[in-house]
């Protein structure tokens, strides 16, 4: 029986986008697990995870995963495998394997904030290393984090290619406008 090749949401061989002083690169694929604790089970869930669940719009690091708040009563654990977690979370939470449901990208460069402003209504200044912001990006959804001076973007898989194209257009727009100079 043949092996089923695993593809990134952006297709095979996605090369980082570069325009002006900005780069958009795909992060290496890693496991992602959706966690939704049952009533009154958040504390027990935290114990299994080895760290408290972050507050709304928050991000927390635990020994085995990065936890991002992703919505009401929902968290996304980056770097944690659903199959490994599920047995320990039986009766505590709904567990979904979201490893393939998201494209993970990182936007860096001095113009990253200006590019994000073309796409997202969120105030980039409000994003700290402890932030996880589910928001709108180019008329689609995104979960945005701060990565150093740049931004981490989690995009739903099925529209990731389209969204990446839109980010590229915004990057080129910023770069082209800088070429205009003052005035």
């Amino acid at each position: 029986m043949a092996d089923l090749r695993h593809l990134s949401p952006l297709g095979p061989g996605f090369a980082a986008l570069q325009a002006g002083r900005c780069t958009l690169a795909e992060r290496p694929h890693r496991a992602k697990t959706g966690l939704r604790p049952f009533r009154g089970r958040a504390a027990a869930l935290s114990e299994v995870l080895g760290g408290p669940l972050p507050a709304p719009q928050g991000r927390a690091e635990t020994p085995h995963a990065t936890l991002l708040w992703s919505g009401r009563g929902a968290w996304l654990a980056l770097g944690a495998e659903a199959a490994a977690l599920a047995p320990r979370l039986h009766g505590l939470a709904g567990v979904t394997d979201e490893s393939d449901a998201w494209a993970e990208l990182i936007l860096t460069g001095p113009d990253a904030e200006a590019v994000l402003a073309r796409l997202c209504p969120l105030d980039a200044r409000s994003l700290t290393p402890a932030s996880a912001a589910p928001t709108e990006l180019a008329h689609s959804r995104a979960l945005i984090t701060r990565e150093g001076e740049g931004f981490g973007l989690l995009l739903p898989r099925s529209s990731a290619a389209w969204t990446v194209h839109e980010i590229g257009a915004a990057m080129r727009s910023i770069a082209a406008q800088q070429g205009l100079g003052a005035g």
């Binding site: 929902a74 394997d97 979201e98 393939d100 449901a101 898989r157």
Partner: peptide, 11 residues
């Protein structure tokens, strides 16, 4: 009711 829903269409 003690239940949770998650969209898994993308996954």
């Amino acid at each position: 009711l003690d239940a949770v829903c998650a969209s898994v269409t993308e996954g």
